[in-house]
């Protein structure tokens, strides 16, 4: 793995279906019905069922851990939840695209990676950044 400022991480494209939301709800303990119940989601003004922000954050992390090859090398990770990811009630779900760029080399053999996470052409996370330990 080479890292210099401007190095681009391999792009990650991942699909999220309603079944993935139910699975994440169980695994995380976040059973907020806006992530699985269309009626409740619409009642609170959403266009439909949306993905857990924390699921989007977790999926985006895979672009980083896949690049470093070591999940424990992700030392710091932060995101702002900008726009909800609406997950339609069909078999293909929503598509997320994660791109990452090395933004800075830090002391101690670390690097800062800035992530861009989009769905349906819109940015869904902002200020998404990770600090990783390099090889």
């Amino acid at each position: 793995m080479t890292a210099e400022v401007g190095t681009e991480l391999p792009e990650l494209v991942v699909r999220v279906t309603r079944a993935d939301l139910v699975r994440y709800a169980g695994a995380s303990g976040d059973f907020n019905p806006i992530h699985w119940n269309e009626r409740v989601a619409r009642e609170v003004g959403l266009p439909g069922v949306i993905a857990h922000g924390m699921l989007t954050m977790a999926l985006a992390a895979r672009a980083v851990t896949g690049w470093t090859g070591d999940p424990a090398a992700l030392l710091e990770y932060q995101v702002r939840f900008g726009r909800p990811v609406v997950v339609p009630d069909d078999d293909s779900g929503a598509e997320l695209t994660v791109r990452g760029t090395v933004a800075a080399l830090l002391d101690g053999g670390r690097a800062r990676v800035d992530l861009t996470v989009t769905s349906a052409g819109e940015k869904v996370l902002s200020l998404a950044r990770a600090v990783v330990r390099l090889g």
Binding site: M54, A72, L74, E76, Y77, Q78, R80, F81, L127
Partner: peptide, 13 residues
Amino acid sequence: VVHGEQRFTHHRP
């Protein structure tokens, strides 16, 4: 209440 931002700093896994 909605979740606005999240940050993790791992001291160890």
